[in-house]
Design a protein around this nucleic acid. Structure first.
Lengths: 178, 178
DNA sequence: TCCGTTATATATCAAATCGATATATGATAG
DNA sequence: CTATCATATATCGATTTGATATATAACGGA
């Protein structure tokens, strides 16, 4: 499954421009699947070439022109083929956790600050998820929203209960450095 | 922070071959930072060119020759510089969750099976984490291990409590298709 | 008023990274 | 006897990132 496939998926939910697809990735899918402009625009061009989406250009007043994409019947079929495949394993990259892994090399104050910031960030993300995801949404979106909240809340709880492990390490490092 | 930096990080914990570094990523860092052979070997070559690591070749009986890498003083300094920087945001990609997002397009049996498999996988991962991460480990490793267990357990709990949301969607999709 | 930032919108490109493949040997399991 | 797994390194096409460029309008603060 690549970004082309995910663009098809977003388009099954309704027509959209490349910009709007990026917004959807940012707002609702970043927890699931990260994608940048540099991959979305080329993906849409290729999908258009393959007749999996159609594109109509619209000129706008007071806004740049835009290209609105619609998924075609062939596109829907292709998307179904793709999501029938066994999903590959998750791929995760967190510079934050990588930093924490080496907390014993950093000053205690830096570690504490990073943890505070993380908790604040996760708290914010939970709030915006709960706001954007009311009862009206389809079940799958509610599920995803709840999933995000559950995981982020687990992270917050864990940080609050175990931050002393890292803060102790950092203190030791600091003393050794003195 | 790139894979070169993380290789330096792994080498602060002791000398290792490229293969062993890959193992470390798989066994203990996959939750944190994904990396493949295709990026690790070139990373080590470049680090060697920059004198951030040194390399000694060792011929072995009954095993292929290997190259053991050690971090240099310059490497340690560079690594510290890198982890002092503000960490970039997490980058996540889960084909599994992407599939779940469109569960209403799939047969109910497929969804149920995927959820069962996910729970089994997470349960296994927790078990192996608890096994590999006893008290002897330094605080930061215990912290990471606990973090993984907490997040995976939250996922399992959430799936058990909310799988009906997706399974209901899939049933509806199935009826509509009939 | 002027200036910086944010939002809308598309496009491109070097650099980073993935994942598959190739090569070689020994051990272990079925 | 054969298949698979573990050790070990290397390469390469394809994918993806993240930064940058371009253009216009709105909005708020100094």
């Amino acid at each position: 499954m690549d970004i082309r496939t995910l663009c098809l998926g977003v388009l099954t939910m309704g027509d959209a421009t490349g910009y709007e697809i990026k917004k959807t990735f940012e707002d609702r899918l970043d927890l699931i699947f990260h994608a940048s402009f540099g991959s979305i625009y080329p993906a849409l061009n290729k999908l258009t070439d393959e007749n999996l989406v159609s594109c109509r250009e619209m000129s706008q007043e007071k806004r740049p022109d835009k290209k609105v994409y619609s998924i075609t019947a062939a596109g829907r079929y292709r998307f179904l083929e793709e999501i029938m495949k066994k999903p590959a394993g998750d791929r995760f990259r967190s510079e934050y956790l990588a930093t924490m892994m080496f907390s014993h090399l950093l000053p205690a104050s830096t570690i504490s600050q990073l943890i505070d910031e993380r908790i604040a960030d996760r708290t914010e993300k939970i709030a915006s998820m709960l706001e954007d995801c009311p009862d009206r949404s389809p079940n799958s979106e509610q599920f995803m929203c709840g999933y995000g909240v559950a995981v982020y809340q687990a992270e917050i709880d864990y940080l609050n209960e175990n931050r002393h492990l890292l803060e102790a390490d950092a203190l030791i490092g600091q003393r050794a450095a003195e």
